[in-house]
């Protein structure tokens, strides 16, 4: 797909959901919404760097909502992103206030977020923890798992790309890497009960 001047919400969510031209979809999200989200943070005592962090996290939450079909297009991407960013920035301000005892005023009032947005944000907080465990795996493990689960490459392609002697050797390695990650997850006290509840519902 060629880069549209202004792709619609439906086009963007389809590209993300189908993982087709996803970089174009993300670029469109940035073109269309970065300014608004940055303004939200800047007008509430945040810096440009704060805004960049909040926006990056918010984009990930939105992607997660689209992938798990929690975003079904009833609301616009703009309003969902705004709601996520606002929620995230309020949490960040609270964190900063409690750690640095800052007393600057901010004008954000907490809205009633849709349950889907709140759930996606909570889910992401838990996933961050598992993502950190993933980052602790060795470089080869990370590459195999990334190519298989994110890039969705066939074992044969991964085998060629990473120069494994055979697909079976690669399969064994992939098994060990995934096992190592799931074992770390199971052994983590950081995985909240809330997420386990969410996962049970999804099953």
């Amino acid at each position: 797909m060629k880069l549209n001047k202004h792709a619609s919400d439906r086009e963007i969510s389809e590209m993300i959901r189908m993982k087709k031209d996803q970089n174009i979809a993300i670029a469109q999200l940035y073109e269309q919404h970065y300014g608004l989200l940055e303004k939200l943070v800047l007008q509430n005592n945040g810096t440009e760097d704060d805004a960049a962090d909040v926006i990056q996290d918010s984009m990930l939450v939105l992607v997660q909502m689209i992938k798990s079909e929690k975003f079904r297009g009833e609301a616009s991407i703009k309003s969902i992103l705004y709601s996520i960013a606002k929620n995230k920035w309020i949490s960040e301000i609270r964190k900063q206030k409690s750690t640095q005892n800052r007393h600057e005023s901010y004008h954000l009032e907490e809205d009633e977020y849709s349950p889907d947005v709140s759930e996606a944000i909570a889910n992401q907080e838990n996933l961050k923890y598992v993502m950190a465990l993933f980052e602790k795996l060795g470089d080869t493990c990370r590459r195999i798992l990334q190519l298989f689960y994110y890039e969705e490459l066939a074992m044969k392609e991964i085998c060629e790309q990473l120069e494994f002697s055979s697909e079976q050797v690669l399969r064994n390695k992939k098994y060990k890497c995934l096992k190592s990650l799931t074992d770390s997850v199971k052994a983590s006290p950081g995985i909240s009960k809330t997420l386990q509840k969410i996962l049970r519902n999804e099953k």
């Binding site: 984009m59 997660q64 992938k67 838990n126 993502m131 990334q146 689960y149 799931t182 997420l195």
Partner: peptide, 25 residues
């Protein structure tokens, strides 16, 4: 085991998205 597997697979995928989002940003 199933929950940990679901979480692990989701986290691997989200890590990929996170990397792409960071590059785009």
């Amino acid at each position: 085991e199933v929950q940990a597997l679901m979480l692990a697979r989701e986290a691997i995928e989200m890590h990929g998205w996170k990397t792409d989002i960071a590059k785009t940003q």
